[in-house]
Design a protein around this nucleic acid. Sequence first.
DNA 1: TAGATTGTTAATCGATTAACAATC
DNA 2: TAGATTGTTAATCGATTAACAATC
Lengths: 210, 210
Amino acid sequence: MKNDNVVSGIPDIVIGRLPVYLRALTHLAESGKMNTSSHELGRRLGISSAQIRKDLSHFGEFGKQGTGYNISYLIDQLLQILKLDQEWPVAIVGAGFLGHALAHYQGFKHRGFVMRWVFDIDESKVGDEMDGMVVQHLSDLPLVAEREGIKMAIIAVPVNAAQNVADRLVACNINAILNYAPINLSVPPNVHIQYSDPVVQMQHMTYYLS
Amino acid sequence: MKNDNVVSGIPDIVIGRLPVYLRALTHLAESGKMNTSSHELGRRLGISSAQIRKDLSHFGEFGKQGTGYNISYLIDQLLQILKLDQEWPVAIVGAGFLGHALAHYQGFKHRGFVMRWVFDIDESKVGDEMDGMVVQHLSDLPLVAEREGIKMAIIAVPVNAAQNVADRLVACNINAILNYAPINLSVPPNVHIQYSDPVVQMQHMTYYLS
DNA sequence: TAGATTGTTAATCGATTAACAATC
DNA sequence: TAGATTGTTAATCGATTAACAATC
């Protein structure tokens, strides 16, 4: 559940906030603003200005006293820090409703990712077209992954298949996985996982409901 | 970004782990196990046994020295704590690919939720059938929300519509929102929000990629 | 100049872990 | 009984915040 990266020395919780800063800065830029301050950004995100300055200070000095931050410059810096100055091709595993929604989602554009491959184990789906991709059989994953150097994948399969899929991904040297199946996966320590389970998130909120 | 609930006094970070414990316990139960220990559960989840015991101790004593926890009893207790001893009907806003995937998702079953309403602003979608639900116009939300007492909703609309939808939901006294749009929403302090943005999660992982 | 805001230090706050008596 | 494991306390660890000199 923890994911502190000892190598970089920067707390994982800080890394996790950078994409949120980046997203807010992009919205500010789109609204035509040129500059912002840690106070303004903090107000928008509901966090303290001190935390934003402290987080950024792990990576360098990006602001100016008196005037704050130049938005497009700070965006560029965050893109570099997060290795988003390149586009990452991603494999989707699972050609069901969720896989389809992900393949069709326009929100990856200009944010560092492009869905490039779709795999499924269901023979009847293999060969189908899905948003410009052709569904490939999961047994072709090793070949394709090696040839294309796939680094990131999204698990969008039923819960009972998820661990098996994770094992296959890991075997192909894919070491960043976004998992939508409602299960805690077991993977080697060098593999990074992010979890997204709507039920877990909804259950978190019901605690506070009357 | 923070969400500490001062009323209950129990740290929000603890509440957030309970659904994960619940999920793992359910898997253990399904595999036929009757009992478990904080060590076994911790090993599965990659967290310390001490943390599990400490988290649970906020709510009572659920184990037995020497033998650990009876799984089905602990599940029942967690269900009660998280107010999941009832089924929560949920409104989906947005009848696009994501809304469709959520409406069709079987994973809500037996975990406390049932998707019961779908709203959209697109006239051409209103009236369509979606997994047993009929898409209603968003302008009907106030009426339906009051009549049915809707408490929870999922935002599955494009980013530029999300804040407006959030405002409408809040105006209808819906105070638990799962937001899939890639934007930080502004809502009153009594409204609970969970965020799910695949891009933010992917960007978190790219930091660690070579 | 006066006002604003940074980056950083030290203090505070809170979360995690280690240790162990109690006891099944 | 011996071994295992809980619930809890105190210690440790880490994250957040307050404060402020520097300076645009």
